[in-house]
Design a protein around this nucleic acid. Structure first.
Length: 297
DNA sequence: CCAGACGTTGTT
DNA sequence: GTCTGG
DNA sequence: CCAGACGTTGTT
DNA sequence: GTCTGG
């Protein structure tokens, strides 16, 4: 899935890219909170803060839920019951959420049911492809081509394509969870290219991170005489290691993506998964009302 | 009922 | 192998 | 996501 | 806080 993004635009440019239309159809720019925490980078990793869009109603009682706020936030979900001050003390991973279990996993379904939706802004994201026969992993940059509307903010494996989808996703006051989930579907107007291994280290923050690059050259580890003897010794002594050069099981030649999203892509499997996801939601809550109309007993 | 987890990746 | 830090 | 640490006592 | 497992 997604563990690295680029979000490098200057703040004013990013803000304009997030222009949207409110309930009255007026064109607006999202209002910033904590603008100084915005830290543009070509190489954003979990624990860093990324700009996030969310409904104003999350901040002000009685606010227009179609109005949007933009705030730098730490990557990863912190459960509401987590009392430590330091979110890095959370003892399990919440940097990703599987779309096929989001309605089962308590850490995600509870906040989802409360309308806690947001949109993480990014130029695109990185994925590492493991190739057979090497330990190296080939990074790729994946993004919307810069042709259409300039604004195409994304949430990672769940990508919202276009302003309207973003607005509906955020407007938890009017748009129910079930309607919101329908906005997430595989997108096809997306593209990618291989990038340099420079992106591997999250300290590297340069345009080279997302620049097109040649595929990683599979260099045979030039083994010195001594290391060859060492390898032989390991091969005979260690039951865990396989003899170097022994035939590998998987000769399919099919590239294995780390991402479920890219692996299964926009075809039947994913469609089916999405449908059963929605079906399950519909079963457990028949006539979901939008948040704005729910009674607060 | 209480205790304890609450999550993802990938690989075997 | 697994966790933390970036 | 990947890279890099993973530990303690005591002294400078 | 809420769910699962015992």
């Amino acid at each position: 899935m997604c563990g690295r993004t680029s979000c490098h635009l200057p703040r004013d440019v990013l803000t304009r890219a997030c222009a949207y239309h409110d309930r009255q159809g007026r064109r607006r720019l999202p209002e910033w909170r904590d603008p100084d925490k915005y830290c543009p980078s070509y190489n954003k990793s979990p624990q860093s803060s990324s700009p996030v869009l969310l409904s104003r109603l999350h901040f002000e009682k009685g606010a227009d839920s179609s109005e949007q706020i933009i705030i730098p936030m730490r990557w990863g979900l912190v459960p509401s019951w987590f009392k430590e001050n330091d979110p890095s003390k959370l003892q399990f991973n919440t940097t990703n959420c599987r779309s096929d279990t989001i309605l089962e996993k308590q850490s995600f379904k509870v906040p989802l049911g409360k309308g806690r939706r947001c949109v993480v802004l990014a130029d695109g994201f990185y994925e590492w492809q493991r190739c057979q026969g090497t330990n190296q992993r080939q990074p790729y940059f994946i993004y919307f081509p810069q042709i259409k509307t300039e604004k195409s903010p994304t949430r990672m494996p769940a990508i919202l394509d276009g302003e309207e989808a973003v607005s509906k996703w955020l407007d938890f006051g009017e748009v129910t969870t079930q309607e919101a989930l329908k906005l997430i579907h595989p997108i096809d107007n997306i593209t990618f290219h291989p990038v340099s291994l420079v992106v591997n280290n999250s300290r590297n923050n340069t345009p080279e991170c997302l620049a097109p690059a040649d595929l990683v050259t599979k260099k045979e580890p030039k083994t010195s005489g001594s290391s060859q003897r060492m390898m032989q010794w390991l091969a005979t002594k260690s039951p865990k290691k396989e003899a170097p050069g022994s035939p590998k099981k998987d000769e399919s030649g099919i590239p294995q993506w780390s991402s479920q999203f890219l692996q299964k892509s926009p075809l039947p499997a994913k469609r089916g998964a999405t449908r059963s996801l929605l079906d399950r939601w519909l079963k457990q809550e028949k006539e979901e009302e939008p948040m704005a109309k729910r009674s607060h007993s």
